[in-house]
Simulated assay, not measured.
Amino acid sequence: MTVTLITGANKGIGFATARQLLDLGHVVYVGARDTGRGEEAASALGARFVPLDVTDDASVAKALATVDADEGRLDVLVHNAGIAENGVVDGPTALRVFDTNVVGIVRVTEAALPLLRRSSNPTVVTVSSSAGSFWAVNNPDRPEFTLTSPLYSASKSAATMITVQYAKSQPGIKFNAVEPGYTATDLTAAIGGGRTPAESARTVVRLATLPPDGPTGTLQDDSGPLSW
């Protein structure tokens, strides 16, 4: 069985991704910082829960130690945890956004690398955003052109770049970033609209189930690789 860990999986795209991967036969660990919500989500899905706060080194280490003890390896890691903090631009907010959206990726990846190296087809997917794509935000034909969210967009640029750099430094592991599409989640509640998390999760699942010779170091959406 394929062993998968998803951060921030108690709701939204992470929850929908967990459901779809479970349907494909994966053993899925739902990572969430809120124990009550995480346990409730895992129970509803038929998944396994592991407490995981991507901003806390000890929490990350303990979560990966749990997966190691239970499974002995990790086949798929999905970086889904993220925050937006729209409207506020100051130092403390910037630190909070980057700590979750970027440094969190580094914390979890570094803790997971020993387990991923034991997999026959190790795969890492970062839920990023074309809001962090220079091409998209400067293209008047794209919806990102009118988006004003400095900290979120900058953090997603960094999230995509760290993913690409891991692909270069870890050639035995596939690392790809995904633009999941504008989705109706807690992050977009203030704006409204968007497609369902299940629709957006399909792209995440596609990249999480790549064959051993699949692409690495890309940013993709529903249609394939994106410029960024």
Rank of each mutant, 00 (worst) to 15 (best):
D53L: 07
N86C: 00
L45F: 09
I83N: 08
A41Q: 07
A47K: 02
V50W: 12
V50M: 06
V76K: 09
V60K: 10
R48S: 08
A41F: 03
E85M: 13
P51E: 05
N80G: 02
L77N: 11
V50C: 03
A63T: 07
A69N: 08
A81F: 08
T66F: 10
A81L: 06
V78G: 05
A81W: 06
R73N: 09
A65C: 01
L77W: 01
A81P: 01
V76Q: 09
A69S: 13
R73F: 03
T55Q: 15
V54D: 12
V88R: 15
D57K: 15
L77F: 07
A58Q: 15
A84T: 07
S43A: 12
A63I: 00
A69K: 13
T66H: 14
T66D: 13
L64R: 02
H79R: 05
E40T: 14
V78R: 02
V76S: 08
T66P: 00
A47H: 04
V54A: 08
L64P: 00
T55E: 15
D75E: 08
V50A: 13
A42V: 01
T55P: 00
V88W: 06
A65Q: 10
V78N: 04
E85W: 13
V67H: 14
A63L: 02
A58M: 08
V78I: 14
G82T: 11
V54E: 11
L74D: 06
V50T: 14
A63V: 05
D68N: 14
D68Q: 14
L77M: 06
